Amino acid sequence: MIFTDDTEDALRAAVWLVNSAEDPDTLVTLEDEERFLTAYPYTGRIYRDAAELEELRALRPRLRAMLLAPRDEMVAQVNAALAESTLMPQLRRHDGLDWHLHAVADDRPLAERVLIETTMALIDVIRADEGGRISVCADDGCHALALDLSRNRSKRYCSTTCANRNAVAAYRARRSARH
């Protein structure tokens, strides 16, 4: 494990949200939001309505910029996000998770909680100088983010689809070069 479980979970959720903006957009309906919340459960107030969905959709460009920023710029963006929110840090244990930090109250809007949880995760990324674990997919036609939590830093693609497409292309190129 590179980071604590809650940090890795927050990073995965943020990357999922950012990547949902890729073509085709996969965060369009309330059912899409429900799929996100099932995969990445958040505690606290959740309305599951159109306004909340739009707030999550509007958050995606900001998360992308934060996740891909060089370290010093990431610090500036993290500090800006922290300054915008009313922080109420508390240790919590719930849903089978051990003690972890909730930085804002459960009654804050979901998009704000996602932003601050991502911000808190990025604090760990910054402190460990591990920003290189978040990158744009190595597939030339893909702009999604790849989150590399592997020990050997080998993940280059956002998904197995992109990885397989590139492996097949490399195989075909090697095969053509031999003939």
Rank of each mutant, 00 (worst) to 15 (best):
L68W: 01
A83H: 14
L91Y: 10
L97G: 03
T86K: 06
R62H: 04
L115W: 00
S20A: 14
R45D: 13
R57G: 01
H94P: 06
E55V: 02
T7P: 07
T38N: 09
G44F: 04
A83W: 09
R62Q: 03
D139S: 09
V136A: 11
T161E: 15
N164M: 11
D6E: 10
A138Y: 05
T7E: 11
D25S: 07
A83F: 12
K155F: 12
D49E: 04
I116S: 01
T43C: 15
A146Q: 00
A128G: 06
A111R: 01
Y157T: 03
A163S: 10
P89R: 08
R156G: 07
N164A: 15
R12M: 13
A105I: 02
A69E: 02
A146T: 04
Y157F: 07
A76P: 08
V136F: 05
R151N: 10
N19C: 08
R175K: 08
A170V: 11
A58N: 04
L87E: 02
D23K: 06
M66V: 11
D5R: 06
A121N: 03
N79I: 07
V104P: 00
A10S: 15
M88V: 13
G141I: 11
I2L: 12
M120R: 00
R45A: 07
A80W: 04
R133S: 05
S85N: 10
V114I: 13
I126W: 00
V114K: 00
D107H: 05
A167S: 15
A163Q: 09
I116N: 00
H143W: 13
I134Q: 00
E31W: 04
Q77P: 01
A69I: 02
T43S: 12
R57D: 00
D140P: 14
R93P: 02
Y47C: 06
R175F: 10
L11Q: 10
A80D: 15
T29Q: 12
E130D: 11
A83I: 07
L63C: 04
